[in-house]
Write a protein that binds this DNA or RNA. Structure first.
Lengths: 304, 304
DNA sequence: CACTCTCATACGTCCAATATATGAATCAGT
DNA sequence: ACTGATTCATATATTGGACGTATGAGAGTG
């Protein structure tokens, strides 16, 4: 049996007339008769009662017509379904991000817009540290992740910079430097620092330490934290100063004052990573398109 | 798209390997590749990722594989469904019968056995008078009916005698004739009669009246009733005597005594009628087979 | 009875599914 | 790096079956 048989059968059932059904199908009446006979032979029962004028369905024909119509509809839907999955309209995407990512307005905006445009894509979100995210992407626990700069091998992963923002100095509000418009790193040389622990935030940790070295000193770290939100709170409690991505200003915590850094300004990069072999996965392509569309002008770099 | 494409696609998806799938399908690998390509072209998306060793499904392929498997199963089921409907295993049958039919043991037996054998045939039962049943069959309100003899045209209907039983005299229990072993009709000539009303039970009514005429008298009808059960009760209450199908003995009503009639014995025929055009409807054929199988030896007659 | 309508049958044609042969790409092993 | 094996893709030939044309059969209809 082929779908042709079902299509022809349904046409005859609808028309109640071989000749008209054949015309509607764009074939001749004799081949249509043959195809229906073939179907009846295969089912072992006649589907139509042949009358002097036209035909009517038998009981078996009526039963089969219902099924045939449903099957033809299902075939259409299956095609459409496959097309939608292929186009990325349907499916799932598992996104990972570091703790600090949602503080930059672009990230929630991207997520919101993605869910609006592709409501049939199951969207899951997970928060981990950068090394945890790299492992999660590698191990196929998430499909893509927003991470801070990665050290070490990234073979098998593709990476693309999404945001490259300035870092700011975060001071306890009562701090003597808090009234200055901007602060040079050197001015912080004697301050106690609260920093990312190197184990989980190596990228930004190293960026900050390197910037301080360039300014001529080595920061005195009195406390490490693995979450950027913890750092803000530790600064607020007066434990020390820190250097944080500009977007962390949006955390609105009392007791912390942010101030720009005089040049050279250390940068906080936020990048998207994914498995290179999945580069053409449609939802991934859609997400990258969307980021490119919504991201501010600053040219992002990309490497394989 | 044809079912061939789905069958081939599922085979490749199962095997993860074109060459092996082709062998399993009993065709060569190149035609299989072409058919899959054709399917992919129609869907506008690739279904497999071709690897150095074998192939794996893409996301769209995985989605389509589920649908394709379901569709192929549905096609199988639709065939089976049609076959079952055609064989009479599945469907419905609407049966009508007169009030007196269930008193003959054959009728409940036939109904019980039919439902046991064909549990997937929806069975409905309706009780009417003989003329009402003839109209119901004609008007397609029921498919088949057990009726008493019909007068008048029966064109378009087929009829087959199911039971041809003797009639008995029904007397009030205290009646002087009740002690006799058998009774001649002539002995009833002066008795008041309770009979079927001619309007609804013309067949038996006329049979009885004719038998009396042959015996040499015309029965004095004091009461008519349209239901055989009512007649039994009227006789029990002493209103008169009646002549009833032998099977009515099974009604076990106190106050009524049944006695055989000396020859010639009037007969009560119970017949099955159906629309002639539906003679080949499978459930109808099954029911007639069953009756023939369970009916006692007496040869039944049949006319078109 | 002639005529029409409709589906079935007979037979020829042609396309498309299949077979055969070969190519291209990748990988394993020497 | 080269060779051979594996596997899917491509090219060309073959053939079965779907389709078209012509005609028949049966049942109304005027």
């Amino acid at each position: 049996m082929e779908l042709r048989h079902l299509r022809y059968f349904v046409a005859v059932a609808d028309e109640g007339h071989f000749t008209r059904a054949a015309a509607q199908l764009g074939i001749g009446q004799p081949p249509l008769s043959l195809q229906i006979q073939q179907l009846e032979r295969e089912l072992g029962t006649s589907l139509f009662k042949r009358l002097p004028r036209g035909v009517v369905l038998t009981d078996a024909g009526r039963a089969f017509a219902q099924d045939a119509r449903r099957i033809l509809r299902d075939v259409e839907q299956a095609s459409e379904h496959a097309r939608r999955v292929a186009s990325g309209e349907l499916g799932r995407i598992r996104v990972g991000m570091i703790n600090s990512a949602p503080f930059h307005p672009l990230i929630p905006q991207v997520i919101r817009e993605f869910r609006r445009r592709y409501p049939d894509v199951a969207f899951s979100l997970e928060e981990r540290t950068t090394p945890g995210l790299v492992a999660a992407v590698r191990g196929d626990a998430v499909d893509v992740a927003f991470v801070r700069p990665i050290h070490g091998s990234d073979d098998g992963l593709s990476i693309e910079t999404v945001i490259d923002e300035d870092m700011l100095v975060a001071l306890p509000s009562g701090h003597p430097l808090a009234h200055r418009a901007s602060i040079s790193l050197l001015a912080l040389s004697i301050e106690p620092f609260v920093l990312f622990s190197r184990a989980v935030g190596a990228g930004l940790h190293d960026e900050i330490v390197a910037a301080c070295r360039v300014a001529g000193f080595s920061p005195r770290v009195v406390q490490e934290a693995s979450q950027v939100t913890s750092i803000v709170n530790l600064v607020a409690s007066g434990l020390g100063v820190s250097i944080l991505p500009a977007s962390m200003q949006h955390m609105h915590t009392d007791g912390v004052t942010f101030r720009p850094i005089t040049r050279p300004v250390p940068k906080a990069r936020l990048s998207l990573i994914w498995r290179h072999e999945d580069r053409d996965a449609p939802q991934l392509v859609r997400l990258r398109e969307l980021i490119r569309e919504l991201a501010p002008a600053p040219r992002r770099q990309r490497r394989a």
